[in-house]
């Protein structure tokens, strides 16, 4: 009985398509609004310096095998010796990142703006969908699912006889919410995607602790097994040249 459920074409024209289009447009709007609201913050000189030191140390680690052992040892000492190495952080001197974050009102403000720009449109759209389209069977997914998915796909319809593959309009909204991420990353560039992950990071982990990454980089540099590759490259060059000559 559930198989021959006939849906009115008006539902397609006035529920399914408008809902999807609105979701896309709201995503685009949200992107531009959050871009406008993003305040250009002046980075802290000390943090930038530490970040650059980390990048330099990482470069050294990646290219360690291209310099002679003596040079490598000298550079490693420069970064990680226990007295004045660039990566060495004295024990009690590590600043509390969390406290620093709270003392900077700009940071908290920025975070709130970002969160708001995400939450407000979602709440509004959800309210809009609920108000206008509650109780419609709006779509049918083209593959069968088990009863377990009923709560997920037929949110807003309290009928246990309808086949599970029919989707209510409210659940179509949720499907759009998650499935359009890929489309956004194409039409808006990857800035959109990275923004999302950054937002996640800020919400959960409260940024990162620069001193911790300094220490990690120092440990990484300390355990590098240095193995100069230049002699091997000479052999390789010899082989290539011989091949050319032949």
């Amino acid at each position: 009985m559930a198989e021959d459920l006939v849906l009115d074409t008006a539902i397609r024209d006035w529920v399914l398509i408008p809902l999807s289009v609105v979701m896309v447009l709201i995503g685009v709007l949200r992107y531009f609004v959050s871009k406008l609201m993003r305040s250009a913050q002046i980075p802290d000189a000390k943090l930038v310096k530490e970040g650059q030191v980390i990048v330099r140390a990482r470069n050294l680690r990646a290219a360690a095998n291209f310099i002679p052992p003596k040079s490598f040892r000298a550079r490693r000492l420069y970064y990680s010796n226990e007295e004045n190495g660039l990566l060495y952080v004295p024990k009690g001197q590590a600043p509390n990142a969390q406290a620093q974050m709270f003392s900077d009102p700009n940071m908290a403000m920025d975070m709130m703006k970002k969160n708001l720009s995400m939450i407000i449109p979602q709440t509004l759209t959800f309210a809009w969908v609920n108000f206008f389209f509650s109780g419609f069977v709006a779509a049918k997914i083209p593959f069968p699912l088990t009863q377990r998915f009923r709560a997920m796909l037929q949110n807003g319809i309290d009928l246990s006889t309808v086949d599970v593959s029919y989707v209510s309009s409210r659940s179509w909204y949720f499907l759009n919410l998650f499935g359009l991420r890929g489309l956004f990353s194409i039409i808006l560039g990857e800035e959109n995607a990275t923004d999302d992950t950054q937002r996640m990071m800020q919400m959960t982990g409260f940024g990162f602790d620069p001193t911790k990454s300094l220490g990690a980089e120092k440990d990484g540099l300390d355990i590098v097994q240095h193995d100069w590759t230049m002699p091997k490259f000479e052999r390789r060059a010899e082989a290539v040249l011989r091949k050319l000559v032949r």
Binding site: L7, D8, T9, I11, R12, L16, I17, S20, A139, K140, I141, P142, V167, L175, N176, F178, G179, L180, R181, G182, L183
Partner: peptide
Amino acid sequence: LGGLMSFVLFWTFAYDIVHIF
């Protein structure tokens, strides 16, 4: 598998528009 969600969404969308109504 990253595109599976997008695939399912657009598959459902196109299928519904063309076939079930």
